[in-house]
């Protein structure tokens, strides 16, 4: 059982929930939790949400970031109704493949599409001295989750590069017009295959499909490209 400690608006349509889970024994970045909601008449709905936070034994909190889907059943509740103090039934952590392990020393390429940033943010937050490159594709600057933190980390965290790709609208003074992610971006802003990086790609299915194909075409070992997808084909 989790208690909502705090909520933070990340964008106009995405919200972070900070959950207190007293019995939480820790998680790996990339894992998710299942949330179960129960209506008064007993009707239940379950969904999975990626964990956004790195585990810290001191805090016992878990953060998830929820993107509101207009036709959704659970995400409007989590982004609009839930308040601090509310209790939520959670289960987890779940998932043992799309995870980054802090004992790994290999360089890491992270590629996010939209709210696919969430599990990758947990990796960025858990990073030690390993070399990370993050490519984060969004429609507009207003769609960037964790915008301030990412800008700060890109400036201050040694060994972390962050590159944004805007497909519809770019910030003022941005050097290139809106563009979709392409193989040149992946090649320039990800680690080259010679470095044998671990690659994590998360986002809507079509995005992940295209980006994973690019990584393979660039010569990355398919076994080192881990994907997590949401939405239909």
């Amino acid at each position: 059982m989790a208690t909502v400690r705090e909520t933070r608006e990340e964008t106009g349509t995405a919200r972070t929930l900070v959950l207190d889970i007293p019995e939480w024994a820790g998680h790996l970045p990339g894992q998710h939790i299942d949330i179960r909601l129960t209506a008064e008449d007993g009707y239940q709905a379950q969904r999975s949400y990626s964990i956004a936070s790195a585990w810290s034994a001191d805090s016992k909190t878990v953060e998830i970031s929820v993107q509101r889907l207009e036709d959704g059943e659970v995400s409007p509740y989590l982004t609009e109704v839930v308040e601090p103090g509310d209790q939520i039934e959670v289960r987890g952590p779940i998932g043992g493949w799309f995870v980054w392990r802090a004992e790994s020393t290999a360089p890491v390429t992270l590629i996010a599409g939209g709210s696919g940033i969430v599990p990758l943010m947990a990796m960025v937050r858990a990073r030690g001295r390993q070399l990370f490159r993050l490519i984060y594709a969004v429609r507009t600057p207003a769609d960037v989750l964790y915008a301030d933190e990412l800008r700060r980390r890109a400036r201050e965290d040694f060994g972390l590069d962050v590159h944004f790709v805007y497909s519809r609208e770019v910030p003022a003074g941005w050097p290139v017009p809106p563009q979709r992610i392409d193989i040149a971006v992946v090649n320039t802003h990800g680690w080259p295959p010679d470095f044998a990086p671990d690659c994590f790609v998360c986002g809507p299915n079509t995005f992940v499909e295209v980006v994973a194909d690019m990584l393979v075409a660039l010569g990355h070992d398919p076994a080192k490209v881990r994907t997590e997808r949401f939405g239909g084909a």
């Binding site: 059943e73 076994a223 994907t227 997808r229």
Partner: peptide
Amino acid sequence: YQAHDFPVLSAGPTP
């Protein structure tokens, strides 16, 4: 829950 599209779940690139 009932989906009307056909979501994809794969651990890696599509061969």
